[in-house]
Every structure is written in structure tokens, then in C-alpha cells.
């Protein structure tokens, strides 16, 4: 693979916020590391990316090389200091990492990443209640951070506190009224809470998600199960029941259509995959 191809891949992953840690380490070691001087200023962003990927995969050898390069280039940088904290987290030296993050926050009160790392440290120690507390405090200062609201919702779902999780999703929907994924998640939470009123909300929010994105499969399935739960569990008038049944039939029809559409394509894909698999993997297995 050409080093420029790898550079472009890394660039895309940085922009998407998708880590692909395993691949990043592989590609770096095999193709990019020897060419890193050609990257120009981008080198430092790549070094940071590889550093984090190295920590993710337990490749401290790779991470440490990047860290040395970064600290030489940017002595006294707060951003590099944060990376040092993350390295300590990997080594499970949680208290030392927290000391670093606290120092960063003292220096720069608006540093949001150090605050978020603190939440991550608590989470990795399994101290969920404290992590929630820290995250709430963070959100009182950085109210528009959607990622943080999402994390808080996940914490609450994990704790079984669906009411509070729903509140977080409401906040996210207000901030992003066109994001179908938030409507879907909100509906899923409401369905899990149960009860006639919540089921009705679930139906409405699944429907809204479909309206915003007509190929949201999760929302079609969600709509069907919430319709059938409403029909079997609650005391509804027969006209209301009919209406819900109609909605469910419609979702069912749409879903079947989607599967039909993909069927012809996927049969071809299946065949392709099969021939690929029989080519590469079984060959290797015989030789190993």
C-alpha cells in the first residue's frame, strides 16, 4: 500500500471520529512510519492518532515512540500532557492520571477534554455513580456537548434509570431536531419503560424517525413491536385499535419491501463472499 493512501485513510478516520485502532497500528507500522517525514505538519496529528490507537491495542511500544516524538516537538503542551494522562490510564495508574487532568483543569478551566477524561477514568474503574456526578457537573458548564448527553443517557440505561435517560435524549432531540437516531433511541427507551402512555410515545417517535429517514430499519421494527404491545396490553377503543393495526400493517409492508429490494443484491453478494472465503481462509487453514 502506498503511504499516501494510508495518509488519506487516516485523515478520513480522524474526521469521522472512528478509531479503527487495530488497522491504524498495522498500517502505521507497515507503511507510514518510515515515510512520516513526508507528512509535513500533518505528522503530529497522525502521531497523536497512532498513539491513541496504540493504547487501545495495548501496543505501548508503538504508542511510546509517538509520545516521545510529540513531547520533543511540543514541550509543555497541554494537549500532550493529556496524552500522558491517557497513557497512565492504560497502565491502570488511575490516581496519577486524575492528578494530571486536575492540573490541566486548574491551568485552563475551559479544557473540556480533560474533564471528559476524568469521567472516563471513573467509568473504567466501575465507579458509575461518581462518573454520572462528574458528567452532570461537566454538562452544567458545557451544555451543548451532545456526545456528553449521549454518554449520560447510556449510563442511565445501564443503571436501569430510564426516566432520566429519556430526559437526556429529549435534550439531544432539542439540539438536533433532524437526527433520526435520537428519535429512535428515545422511542426505544420509552418502550422499555412500558405502560400505555410510554408505548404511545414510542409509536410516535419511531414514526418520526421513519419520517426523517425512510430506511431506518430499527424504527420500522420498533414501530411494529410497539403497535402489537399496545394492542395486546392496553384498554383501547376498537377504533383506536384499528388505527394502530393499520400503522403496524403499513410498517410491516415497508419492511418486507426493503428485504425484497436487498434480496436480489444479497444473493449475488452471498455467492461472491462464499467464493472469496473458500479461496483465502480454508487455504490458509490447510497450510497452518
Amino acid at each position: 500500500m502506498h503511504w499516501e493512501e494510508v495518509r488519506d485513510k487516516f485523515r478520513i478516520w480522524r474526521e469521522d471520529n472512528s478509531r479503527h485502532s487495530e488497522e491504524v497500528v498495522d498500517l502505521w507500522v507497515n507503511y507510514l512510519q518510515s515515510q512520516k517525514h513526508k507528512l509535513g505538519d500533518e505528522q503530529w496529528m497522525v502521531e497523536e492518532q497512532v498513539f491513541i490507537a496504540g493504547l487501545d491495542c495495548g501496543r505501548l511500544d508503538v504508542a511510546d515512540q509517538c509520545f516521545i516524538a510529540l513531547s520533543k516537538q511540543f514541550p509543555g503542551s497541554v494537549r500532550v500532557l493529556k496524552l500522558k494522562g491517557m497513557r497512565l490510564e492504560t497502565l491502570e495508574r488511575h490516581e496519577d492520571a486524575l492528578t494530571i487532568y486536575d492540573a490541566i483543569i486548574r491551568e485552563d478551566e475551559t479544557n473540556s477534554t480533560a474533564r471528559k477524561r476524568k469521567v472516563a477514568v471513573l467509568k473504567s474503574q466501575g465507579r458509575i455513580q461518581e462518573a454520572i456526578k462528574e458528567l452532570i457537573e461537566y454538562l452544567s458548564k458545557f451544555m451543548s456537548d451532545g456526545e456528553a448527553w449521549q454518554e449520560l443517557a447510556d449510563f442511565y440505561i445501564k443503571e436501569g434509570d430510564y426516566g432520566k435517560a429519556a430526559y437526556c435524549m429529549e435534550e439531544l432531540i432539542l439540539q438536533n431536531p433532524h437526527n433520526h437516531l435520537y428519535y429512535t433511541r428515545y422511542a426505544e427507551i420509552k418502550y422499555t419503560q412500558g405502560g400505555a402512555e410510554n408505548l404511545e410515545l414510542a409509536r410516535n417517535y419511531f414514526s418520526m424517525a421513519i419520517k426523517l429517514n425512510p430506511i431506518n430499519i430499527r424504527a420500522y421494527y420498533g414501530l411494529i413491536v410497539s403497535c402489537s404491545s399496545s394492542i395486546t396490553s392496553s384498554k383501547l377503543t376498537s377504533s383506536k385499535k384499528k388505527e394502530i393495526q393499520k400503522l403496524s400493517d403499513w410498517a410491516q409492508k415497508k419492511l418486507t419491501q426493503r428485504y425484497e429490494e436487498e434480496k436480489s443484491k444479497s444473493i449475488k453478494m452471498d455467492k461472491l463472499q462464499e467464493s472469496l472465503n473458500s479461496l483465502c481462509i480454508t487455504d490458509k487453514s490447510c497450510s497452518s
Binding site: D154, I157, K158, G160, A187, E188, I189, Y191, T192, A202, R218, Y221, G222, I224, V225, S226
Partner: peptide, 12 residues
Amino acid sequence: HGQLGLAPMLEV
């Protein structure tokens, strides 16, 4: 993966 605690997709 990720979020395991929600009912609708599990039922499906």
C-alpha cells in the same frame, strides 16, 4: 454491542 439494556430490538 454497546447498549444492551433496551427492550424493543431484543424482542424483535
